[in-house]
């Protein structure tokens, strides 16, 4: 990143200045992230296996007999002390031994969840990338047309859309594009097992579109605000007064300073998507981890719930570090040790 930073022109790099704060931040954040994940695992374990009464009974429900109850308690390790249970669980998890599902054919959790992870990753990536591009462009456009009709229409629309629940957007899109008005795209997207999502791109359209619609207003608002702030700054005024062409002012002076905020917004968007996929995948019967989590919670399939929730939390922690580092890289001023 060799962005020009007008604010620190006099800083002649005496020593190689770049990597220090970033390496420091990276190490610090990674350690904190690992600590967070450890505590996350405690919370997940406590919520599913220790806290609320007897998990074995919850799983078996009405059909519980003393024998089956004992068997399941033993299998889940519920007959041992909580600390020991936790330790066994965590060490198995860290060794990649995820246990087996409690329902159906009792398949290993890994073989149930990993294919879903791929499906969800495709969904999140497509929605995140498309949403970011659309949001950034619309935000820029509105900022450049500030207080004109375009800006007002975009801002008011984004305010309305940003508060819509994913499932309401999904139902609306299904109504318009799948069932009632046009019948272009499938209303549900059940990718058959063994197939990859990109084998049937038409099935991806509505789930991705739903997430894009939900995500764009947020990036739009951040981008618009950041650009307006940059455009109003004194150094942009200066550049303008020097007589630089409009595009040069925008591209070389205003935009680089709006970049960190935008990167933050995009990072937050991906974080949002980790939760957003739950409802959207459920609506479209899309076989990702979001829908998998809903199914697992419905079936009280505890090992699957534990693993999916930890995966989502790990994604959160990782994205957080990535977006912090990226926004630091994008703001030269803050790279210099103070």
């Amino acid at each position: 990143m060799t962005t020009l930073d007008p604010a620190t022109p006099a800083e002649v790099p005496t020593a190689p200045k770049a990597p220090h704060p970033i390496r420091e931040l990276l190490i610090q954040r990674t350690l904190l992230g690992l600590l967070t994940l450890f505590l996350v695992s405690v919370v997940v374990f406590a919520a599913t296996q220790v806290l609320p009464g007897n998990a074995a009974y919850a799983v078996l429900g009405q059909t519980a007999t003393p024998d089956s109850l004992h068997l399941l308690e033993h299998r889940l390790g519920l007959d041992r002390p909580a600390i020991e249970q936790y330790w066994t669980w965590l060490s198995h998890l860290l060794r990649g031994d995820l246990g087996t599902s409690l329902v159906g054919q009792q398949r290993p959790v890994g073989s149930l969840v990993w294919p879903r992870v791929l499906n969800s990753a495709v969904l999140v990536l497509l929605a995140g990338v498309i949403g970011s591009i659309v949001g950034v462009l619309l935000g820029l456009w509105a900022a450049l047309r500030r207080d004109r009709p375009t800006d007002h229409v975009l801002s008011v629309t984004s305010l309305a859309v940003t508060s819509l629940p994913e499932f309401a957007v999904a139902i609306g899109l299904v109504f318009v594009f799948a069932t009632n008005v046009f019948r272009i795209f499938p209303a549900v997207s059940p990718i058959p097992p063994g197939e990859k999502p990109w084998d049937e791109p038409q099935m991806l359209v509505l789930p991705v579109l739903t997430l894009v619609v939900v995500v764009v207003p947020y990036i739009f608002r951040m981008m618009r605000a950041a650009t307006i702030e940059a455009l109003e700054s004194e150094y942009v005024e200066m550049a303008r007064l020097k007589g630089l062409p409009k595009t040069a002012v925008l591209l070389r002076h205003a935009l680089p300073n709006a970049l960190p905020a935008t990167i933050q917004a995009i990072g937050l968007t991906f974080l949002y998507l980790a939760g957003g996929i739950v409802l959207v995948e459920y609506v479209f019967a899309y076989p990702g981890i979001g829908a998998g989590l809903v199914d697992a919670v419905t079936d009280k399939d505890i090992p699957v719930i534990q693993f999916i929730v930890i995966l989502l939390a790990a994604f959160y922690v990782f994205m957080n570090i990535a977006s912090d580092v990226a926004s630091l890289l994008a703001s030269p001023r803050r790279r210099i040790p103070r």
């Binding site: 919520a47 809903v294 919670v297």
Partner: peptide, 19 residues
């Protein structure tokens, strides 16, 4: 930090999962 690592709906689902 720890609680933020759970998407809100996932956190709610986690808590209702057993009870």
């Amino acid at each position: 930090d720890v609680l933020l690592a759970f998407p809100q709906i996932v956190f709610a689902l986690l808590l209702v999962s057993v009870v």
